[in-house]
């Protein structure tokens, strides 16, 4: 974009992909600086006085959820690759994922709650896989 006069501009198509991101970046910069100016002291106070993350959170449940999800996402396409285009990667990985996550979230683990978690982990992915992949022919991993 080049300015011919304050209001007149010529847009070069081959570089037009940069115009809007540049404008937005400038506005973001200005907003960021104004936040620092008006709230800087508050932000500084929070940073210096507050307890540092991840202190005071439920480590097992928070990081457990993340770790399980990453494993789930990594495993799905790999297992799916063994049975291409059947959606079985999704199906076979969802069962242990659901069970592990349900158990992790449980506050009282006893026979009954574990049975419910297990039944749910078996039934939910089966229903979803059957309806979507088999009935509706939707591609799953």
């Amino acid at each position: 974009m080049s300015f011919d006069s304050p209001f007149h501009v010529t847009v070069d198509f081959s570089s037009s992909h940069l115009i809007f991101p540049t404008i937005i970046a400038v506005i973001l910069g200005v907003l960021f600086i104004s936040i620092l100016i008006t709230r800087g002291s508050t932000i500084l106070a929070t940073v210096t006085n507050g307890t540092w993350w991840p202190a005071g959170i439920d480590h097992a449940r928070f990081f457990g959820t993340l770790a399980l999800t990453v494993i789930y996402f990594l495993a799905m396409p790999s297992v799916g690759d063994i049975f291409p285009n059947t959606g079985l990667g999704f199906y076979l990985c969802s069962i242990p994922y659901l069970f592990a996550l349900s158990t992790l979230f449980l506050r009282e683990r006893n026979r009954r709650t574990l049975m419910i978690a297990g039944a749910n982990a078996l039934i939910a992915p089966s229903v979803v896989w059957y309806i979507l992949s088999e009935l509706f022919n939707i591609s799953l991993p």
């Binding site: 999704f90 996550l101 349900s102 158990t103 978690a117 992915p125 591609s139 991993p141």
Partner: peptide, 23 residues
């Protein structure tokens, strides 16, 4: 503990299928 894992699974299905199968 039952609801959230199911929601997560459905979110995965939704994300994967929105563009017809992009991991």
């Amino acid at each position: 503990n039952i609801l959230f894992p199911i929601i997560l699974m459905m979110c995965v299905v939704g994300a994967y299928t929105i563009n017809y199968g992009v991991m």
